[in-house]
Amino acid sequence: MRWVPTEVDLERHVIVPELDQNMDSPDKFLEDYVFWNTVVDVFMFIATALFLTDTQNPLKGLPGSESTPRRIVYRTVSLDDIKFVKNAMNTTINDVAFGMTQAGLSRYINRICSENKKDGGATETNNLPKSIRLRSNLLVNIRPAPGIQALADMMEKDAEVKWGNWIGYVLLPFTIAVREDPLDYVRNAKAIIDRKKRSLEAFCTFYIADWALNLFGIKAASALSHKVISRTTMCFSNMVGPVEEIGFCGHPMAFLAPSSYGQPYALMINFQSYIDKMTIVLSVDEGTIPNPHQLCDDIVESLQIIKDAVLTRGLA
Rank of each mutant, 00 (worst) to 15 (best):
T233S: 14
K60T: 08
L105H: 05
D276R: 14
L183P: 02
D119P: 07
F203G: 01
W211A: 07
Q21K: 12
L256H: 01
K28W: 11
F174M: 11
K118A: 15
A97R: 03
N165P: 00
D32K: 15
A309K: 02
A220I: 09
N94Y: 14
V39A: 14
C204M: 14
D81V: 00
K117C: 03
P26T: 12
Y169W: 13
T91W: 13
G104D: 03
P242Y: 08
Q263N: 05
D308K: 01
Q149S: 11
P292G: 05
D95G: 00
S225W: 12
R179T: 13
L315Q: 01
T92P: 00
R111Q: 15
F29N: 08
A103E: 01
S302G: 03
L62T: 10
N37I: 04
F84S: 10
I148L: 11
T312D: 08
D153K: 13
E201D: 11
S230M: 05
M89P: 06
I193K: 04
A189K: 03
T175L: 06
M154A: 13
L10G: 12
N57H: 11
A316F: 06
P182M: 01
S230Y: 13
L59K: 06
A152P: 01
M253L: 13
E244R: 09
H226C: 07
F236D: 01
L139K: 02
K118S: 15
F206T: 02
L224E: 01
S225H: 10
S230Q: 11
V34S: 06
T288V: 12
F98E: 01
D184M: 09
T68E: 05
W3T: 14
L267D: 00
E66D: 12
K118H: 14
S259R: 00
H13C: 04
G164H: 06
G262R: 05
D81R: 00
A316M: 05
T76L: 10
K130S: 13
N188Y: 07
L19D: 09
N238G: 08
N165C: 02
M268V: 02
R75V: 04
M1H: 10
A223R: 06
S302N: 03
T91R: 15
S136G: 12
D158Q: 04
T55F: 11
H251L: 15
L171F: 05
D285Q: 05
A309M: 02
T205P: 06
Q304V: 07
D276C: 11
N126V: 08
S199R: 06
T38N: 02
L171R: 04
G164R: 02
G287M: 09
A159W: 08
K117A: 04
R71P: 04
Y185E: 03
A209D: 10
Y108T: 05
T48I: 07
N57Y: 12
K130F: 10
P264F: 08
N141C: 09
A145C: 15
F255S: 06
H293Q: 03
I93K: 03
V85P: 00
A88K: 00
D20I: 12
V77D: 09
S199W: 07
F45P: 02
G104V: 03
K197T: 13
R75P: 01
V300D: 01
Q56Y: 11
